[in-house]
């Protein structure tokens, strides 16, 4: 039985499936390809498509954030590390065949569970969402970014601050972990210079007397 679809719905469906296809294909490739540089680039594509889907659902701020953070920062970080580490493309030699029965057993159990959920549970996802939709707004809705900001800086202020702190900690952690003093680079150490000098000497100064 066909339901008449509006052109908007038709377009929306096409766009969704196009992006969904890209996401799934790229994600799979990220996992499968051998060259890590390719994997990073494919991951960028997957995130890009996801951002598009976010925007389609009205989450413009998050969609753009995803592009800026992931495509702009994290992906670059990945690429940077991948290239810095000079990772050789290693071929795995170990046989995986002996693990196949176990993998099949777990996979079939998972499949059976999913089938059971789909076949036995008649409640659709929409019904699960509390339907009498949000209480009538007391004020006209603003755009997505503003609404999000109002929420973050009121109800979730503490959590938001903690998230910021977490990012700061991550930055410090990364620096502490990767920082090292290098012997082949000239640096000035004032304390060492002072200690090396022959003229300087330690004088025991009597308390309250001065030199």
């Amino acid at each position: 039985m066909l339901v008449a679809l509006s052109p908007f719905q038709l377009t929306e469906g096409l766009v969704f499936f196009a992006f969904a296809f890209v996401i799934v294909a790229c994600a799979l490739s990220v996992v499968v390809v051998r060259n890590p540089v390719h994997a990073v680039l494919l991951m960028v594509a997957a995130f890009f498509s996801s951002a598009a889907l976010f925007i389609m659902q009205g989450a413009e701020f998050l969609g753009l954030l995803l592009i800026i953070v992931y495509v702009g920062a994290i992906a670059v970080l990945f690429l940077f590390v991948v290239m810095m580490l000079d990772i050789r493309i290693v071929a795995t030699t170990k046989s995986r065949r002996k693990h196949v029965p176990l993998a099949l057993a777990v996979a079939s159990l998972l499949l059976a569970e999913l089938a059971a959920v789909v076949l036995l549970d008649t409640t659709s996802a929409e019904q699960m969402v509390a339907k009498p939709s949000p209480p009538a707004p007391t004020r006209p809705l603003l755009d997505n970014t503003t609404e999000l900001g109002l929420l973050i800086y009121s109800d979730y202020l503490v959590v938001f601050e903690i998230a910021g702190l977490l990012l700061l900690l991550a930055m410090l952690g990364a620096i502490v972990l990767t920082h090292r003093t290098r012997d082949d680079v000239a640096r000035q150490s004032i304390a060492e210079q002072k200690a090396r000098s022959e003229k300087a000497r330690l004088v025991k100064v009597a308390s309250k007397d001065g030199v």
Partner: peptide, 16 residues
């Protein structure tokens, strides 16, 4: 993963 699957199996089995 196996643990999660087994938990799921337990949850499904309870609803059967």
């Amino acid at each position: 993963l196996t643990g999660v699957v087994l938990l799921g199996a337990f949850a499904v089995a309870r609803h059967l």
